[in-house]
């Protein structure tokens, strides 16, 4: 039984989210199958990356501000949060989170008469997303905190001279400048967060019914065919594409943030390595 490539795409294109053929190919592997299934797994990388970055952005802003607070009751917890998530490997954080979530009572928890089901928290879509969300928030908070510290003194004095104080000064001057200064580094963070999503299914969170991410399927093919030279370059290809798209989108935002500056003083986005966390 051999399928045309289009049939393969129809059968496996959405396999990673449980739509289409139930059984993964077992023999006669074609390049088309590998491209399709690995591409299908990329849905999960996108899911983790986009959601973690979106939610993480807000938490990161809050933590960056908390780190800047004078009150140690607010500053200290924020500093510890950043220290714990930046100082330890993401891989260990995944394992730890999984083991912690498994320990939640299986029957659920009753809070104020409301019954909360807990079994879903050990699933990758929830548990791993939580870890990635907190992790990216910590890294981004460090970036934004650094940017907040490096706002030119003159800008702040000028704002005060215009009569801007407190919240108004923050929302009109400090916050936009912080974003502008931190954006190139934040772009790197976004790229490498997408890379980090490939760790999810190798770190304790099981893939149910063989529904996994791009690297999960690449690993499946490499194990089955004993040939790493096809599936891994395919994932690499997909990720280079993803990196280009992320760079483009963040570049547009960067242009928007820098639009008021003369062309030669705008900050450019440079790729800087941020390997495994």
């Amino acid at each position: 039984m051999s399928m045309t490539c289009w049939e393969t795409v129809q059968a496996y294109g959405l396999r990673s989210i449980g739509i289409g053929e139930n059984l993964l190919p077992k023999s006669d592997f074609t390049i088309c199958q590998q491209f399709t299934l690995i591409g299908s797994g990329l849905i999960w990388n996108l899911y983790f990356g986009v959601l973690a970055l979106t939610f993480g952005f807000f938490l990161a802003n809050a933590i960056a501000l908390a780190r800047n607070a004078r009150n140690p009751m607010i500053r200290k917890p924020a500093e510890w949060f950043v220290f714990v998530f930046r100082g330890s490997p993401l891989f260990i954080q995944f394992f730890l989170a999984y083991e912690a979530l498994v320990l939640l009572p299986k029957g659920g928890i009753d809070i104020l008469g409301i019954h909360l089901n807990t079994s879903w928290t050990t699933r990758a879509w929830a548990g791993a997303l939580l870890v990635l969300f907190l992790n990216t928030a910590a890294y981004s908070a460090e970036i934004f905190h650094g940017a907040l510290k490096s706002i030119p003194k003159g800008d702040l004095e000028a704002a005060e001279a215009y009569g801007l104080t407190g919240w108004k000064k923050f929302i009109r001057i400090e916050w936009p400048t912080m974003l502008r200064l931190g954006w190139p580094a934040y772009t790197n963070e976004a790229i490498f967060l997408f890379h980090a999503t490939t760790l999810v299914y190798f770190s304790g969170f099981p893939a149910f019914a063989q529904k996994g991410d791009a690297l999960y399927y690449a690993n499946y093919f490499a194990d089955k065919t004993f040939n790493p030279f096809i599936p891994y370059p395919i994932v690499a290809f997909y990720f280079i594409l993803l990196t280009l798209i992320v760079t483009f989108i963040y570049g547009r935002v960067n242009r928007h943030l820098n639009r008021h500056l003369p062309a030669n003083t705008r900050s450019r986005i440079r790729l800087r390595p941020q390997l495994i966390r």
């Binding site: 790229i191 891994y232 994932v235 280079i240 990196t243 280009l244 790729l271 390997l275 495994i276």
Partner: peptide
Amino acid sequence: VRGVPDIIFFLF
């Protein structure tokens, strides 16, 4: 090693 997740290199 840019643009490609490092873990892929490790497995590969």
